[in-house]
Design a protein around this nucleic acid. Structure first.
Lengths: 142, 142
DNA sequence: CCCAACTTAGTTGTGCACAACCGAATGGTG
DNA sequence: CACCATTCGGTTGTGCACAACTAAGTTGGG
């Protein structure tokens, strides 16, 4: 089992390094719009799902309020989102994308092709990678 | 190409989420020793390679001095490492593991088995994942 | 030899992540 | 109704990441 030991260690480091490398690939495309990668993820959820509570954003992105609250405050300052108290449950806060927040979807555009090219992986390999990552995360975050 | 678009996006998010899930798996094993995951990575390099310059640590872990300098300062405060100016090139700083730093290798022990179990991936799948992550990162960080 | 270009490590400032905690709102139970 | 555990969003404090900059040391070309 000697290889396994080294391999597992490397997997964890590879994940850590690959994740940072990917966000570095996004950076030059997001920077011109004043966005960070986590902010972009939040906007993607809003573009796809419309107004969303802070709770649901946290569940989707697996981030807690300690991370989301200041991030949302920055997006609000930039005018991309609007906060609104929930009506029937006043504990909740609903995040609405504003017109400028929605416009960003077109402005940022489709980053897919450039990133697929950057990795050099085939569509088949991307599918495999997606499958393995889902499984790896499956038991870890039930 | 509709699937490709969604897939690529998901890959990047999956990497991001999987990486955080993995460090979360390490946390309970490292916390008792007062270590964070990046600190553990630094120590692993020192355990494996012996005294190492800050430059080489950065190259190996793909972290810059802005990240490493304060991290190493904390490891030094904890008594796990010692800094020493390079002799023939006084710009360099060589990081030496101390006795307590080396002892941590035994204290932390082998986290492999528990983490392999946590993911539920087979050895074969781990090998695939390792391969794909290397390739994905390959062109991104030449 | 001398100086300009480069390398190395460190500092500063911003923005995540996450643990720990807080107060307000909610909802079930006696 | 009164009580209390739970949920929700926010704040605080610590530790990465990374861009931009600095200062000290090194090196090669004139």
């Amino acid at each position: 089992m000697r290889e396994s030991t080294a391999l597992d260690q490397m997997i964890c480091f590879q994940l850590y390094a690959a994740s940072r490398a990917m966000t570095a690939l996004y950076r030059p495309h997001l920077d011109p719009h004043g966005l960070t990668y986590p902010q972009y993820l939040v906007l993607r959820v809003l573009w796809h799902d419309g107004p969303t509570t802070v709770r649901d954003l946290g569940r989707t992105l697996r981030l807690d309020s300690g991370t989301l609250s200041p991030l949302l405050k920055r997006l609000e300052t930039q005018g991309h989102i609007r906060r609104e108290r929930g009506t029937h449950d006043e504990r909740t806060v609903v995040i609405h994308p504003t017109a400028t927040g929605l416009a960003l979807q077109q402005a940022v555009g489709d980053l897919t092709q450039q990133l697929v090219c950057a990795t050099g992986l085939t569509l088949d390999e991307l599918t495999q990678l997606h499958h393995l990552l889902s499984r790896a995360r499956g038991r870890a975050t039930p």
